[in-house]
Design a protein around this nucleic acid. Structure first.
Length: 637
RNA sequence: GCCGACGUAGCUCAGCUGGUAGAGCAGCGGUUUCGUAAACCGCAGGUCACGGGUUCGAAUCCCGUCGUCGGCUCCA
């Protein structure tokens, strides 16, 4: 039990929330009519509906919904009033013992979850029951006046949930439903869900041939098809241009590293669970040949046994991890060369590939994966430079958001909790204070929307996470910007300052475009697959009408001209009718179609059709191509 | 990871209570020569996720494994 809803929050429940909360009582009533032994836990309204958690030997399946809904309709038709009753704690417990809470009558088994809930209600708070018809439930309300006020409802799914969200508690069945005041609103809601399904990046990702996830390659390990890879190339080009202009230098680092690196960085053992298990390597020094041979040791037992031999001097043993983050590698690059204050700020950028062993149940399309390429960079700077650097990063974010037309976003500024210094957060009270003040100033001065979240900083410093919402309302944490004053010290990173002393730099971790995986997943939903020209996997498709040789030559010439300018153009010379070719290109959401017939050839023109805009008519060839090139160059929306 | 549902051709899906698979699209081969969202004919395509079991017989029933999806934060 974390926080209970306050009475004020309850009082401010909207009408639709009351209605849904009432619907959950009716749901419980219906379940009891069918399975009188059901034990109920919590049944609140939620964002898009309501649920009730129930403990029941029968496994409720969607096949049962019709039966349950029929019982619910009877209760609604009966139009029972919701009556509120205030009772003493003892009275409530007494009823609970008789199984009368969340029940239609007294029962043999006590209402165990309700009794537990009563015992957790603060002593100074009143206890109330609600009755509608035979059903009585422990409930603080509020409700609608009568069951008949519940307009249109539908059960939507059943899932499991731990009691109080704690995996040590028993699992309950959570029956979900939604309810609205009118049938029309309910229908609109389901229509909206249907629309959202069409934009789902997993569906579009497959249809538009952007990526696949293959069982044999592994869960959470997306493979990028040429169309997806083209988009990635564009994003990288954008990042490289932007970062070059902002004074970043590019570096490259391997995908694996020895265990010691992550021990130094402090990521092990805290992050071990979210890293792939290490590769064990055993080096055998052969005294005969004097050469070393490798043999992988897979089982822990083998490694252990070999380590004993190691002490005899003939074997040595090591572990390599797939990298889960790039920072330790970049810190090593900082350390590789003696640094002067004149070198700072030093900005090292890399689209680094990282691997994280996310729990199987957490994997989700491109949003939650196990291999990812991060738009990563680390900025090493002096405390004096920090504010300007952090601000520049922030401005880079805003520039990207503008380019992609991302309007709904929120910056979450996570700070430390001073009482947890030395435990959850590194024990540097002054540095925390300083960097948080500086970060807050940057946010305030830039005028962006942000919320401050105490106690959620990284262990090494305050951070900003950017949440954005795709067009279907799915929330994405797409970017991150973190301050780090701990790792540079752990790695003994120093620069020689003006006064000839060694000082430790601050480090800013930043990834404005997040990872390719999540960012492209976001863009697919954001644009519904209708990407701007510069980002489109297939920018232009040339469709010929007829196949006379002169016409084919003309189409080929245009195709070559586009390709010579690095435009992703394809040529459709198939024998389909023009309607068929247009349909095919439209379905793949090809940005621009050049429809070429005899008329165009004779006028040295191109008939242009743009996805979503239809036929724009014929224009001179040179003009059309110049416009395409300019649109790509300017990254027009 | 846990609970539940699901897994049939490249894709979308059909296949009733067990009698060893079917459509449309895509693909391939022809025919068609066409002006902005699907021309016509034919062919080919499947160890019904994988592994066990029950049965005379399994896509179908049972068990296990893998994978996908929905949940697991919002407490009366």
């Amino acid at each position: 039990m974390d926080e209970r809803k306050t009475l004020e929050q309850r009082a401010s429940m909207t009408e639709v929330e009351r209605l849904r909360h009432s619907a959950s009582h009716v749901l419980a009533t219906a379940i009891l009519r069918i399975w009188p032994e059901a034990q109920f836990a919590a049944g609140p309204p939620v964002e898009n509906g309501f649920y009730y958690d129930v403990d029941l030997a029968h496994r409720i399946s969607p096949d049962d919904f019709e039966k349950i809904e029929a019982e619910m309709k009877k209760e609604i038709k009966a139009n029972h009033p919701f009556e509120r009753m205030e009772v003493s704690r003892d009275e409530a417990l007494e009823m609970g013992k008789k199984g009368r809470l969340a029940a239609l009558s007294d029962r043999n088994e006590p209402s165990k979850f309700k009794i537990d809930i009563i015992e957790n209600i603060p002593v100074d708070e009143k206890i109330s029951l609600y009755r509608d018809g035979d059903f009585v439930d422990l409930c603080a309300g509020p409700h609608v006046m009568r069951t008949g006020n519940i307009g249109a409802f539908k059960l939507t799914s059943v899932a499991s949930a731990y009691y109080k969200g704690d995996e040590k508690n028993p699992q309950l069945q959570r029956v979900y439903g939604t309810a609205f005041k009118t049938k029309k609103e309910l229908d609109d809601y389901f229509a909206m869900l249907e629309e959202a399904k069409k934009r789902d990046h997993r569906k579009l990702g497959k249809e538009l041939e952007i990526y696949v996830i293959d069982d044999d390659v592994g869960p959470g390990l997306p493979l990028w098809l040429p169309r997806g890879a083209a988009m990635i190339e564009e994003l990288e080009k954008l990042a490289k241009e932007t970062e070059f202009a902002a004074g970043y230098q590019r570096v490259r680092t391997p995908h694996i590293a020895r265990e010691i690196l992550y021990k130094k960085s402090g990521h092990l053992p805290y992050y071990a669970d979210s890293m792939f298990p290490p590769m064990e390597l055993v080096t055998q020094a052969s005294s005969l040949s004097g050469q070393a041979g490798f043999q992988p040791a897979t089982a822990e037992g083998t490694a252990g046994a070999l380590m004993e031999n190691d002490q005899a001097g003939s074997l040595s043993y090591d572990r390599y991890y797939l990298k889960a983050m790039n920072c330790p590698h970049h810190h090593k690059l900082f350390a590789a060369i003696p640094r002067s204050y004149r070198d700072l700020p030093l900005r090292l950028a890399e689209y680094g590939t990282c691997y994280r062993y996310e729990q199987s149940g957490e994997l989700f399309g491109l949003m939650r994966v196990r291999s990812m390429q991060m738009n990563d960079a680390h900025i090493y700077c002096t405390p004096e430079q920090f504010e300007a650097e952090f601000n520049a990063v922030n401005e880079m974010y805003l520039k990207y958001f503008k380019l992609f037309g991302i309007e709904k976003y929120l910056m979450r500024f996570s700070t430390h909790d001073p009482t947890k210094l030395g435990q959850k957060f590194v024990d540097e009270p002054e540095l925390w204070k300083q960097t948080e003040v500086m970060t807050r100033n940057v946010l305030k001065n830039s005028g962006v929307d942000y919320v401050e979240v105490p106690n959620e900083a990284a262990f090494y410093g305050p951070k900003i996470d950017v949440q954005a919402w795709s067009a279907i309302g799915r929330e994405f944490s797409i970017a991150t910007n973190q301050v780090d004053f701990a790792q540079p010290r752990r790695f003994n990173l120093v620069y020689k300052d003006r006064d000839n002393t060694d000082k430790t730099p601050l480090c800013i971790h930043r990834a404005p475009l997040g990872t390719h995986e999540r960012f492209i997943g976001f863009l697919i939903e954001h644009y519904a697959g209708n990407f701007p020209l510069w980002l489109s996997p297939e920018q232009v498709r040339i469709l010929t009408i007829g196949d006379e040789p002169a016409l084919i030559d003309y189409a080929r010439k245009i195709h070559e001209e586009l390709r010579a300018h690095q435009v992703r153009a394809e040529l459709d010379l198939s024998t389909d009718k023009i309607n068929g070719k247009v349909q095919c290109a439209e379905q793949m959401k090809v940005h621009t179609m050049f429809v070429i017939g005899k008329r165009d050839m004779e006028a040295d023109a191109i008939s242009v059709r743009v996805h979503g805009k239809g036929n724009l008519g014929a224009k001179p060839r040179a003009e059309v191509i110049a416009d395409i090139l300019l649109s790509i160059k300017e990254r027009r929306p």
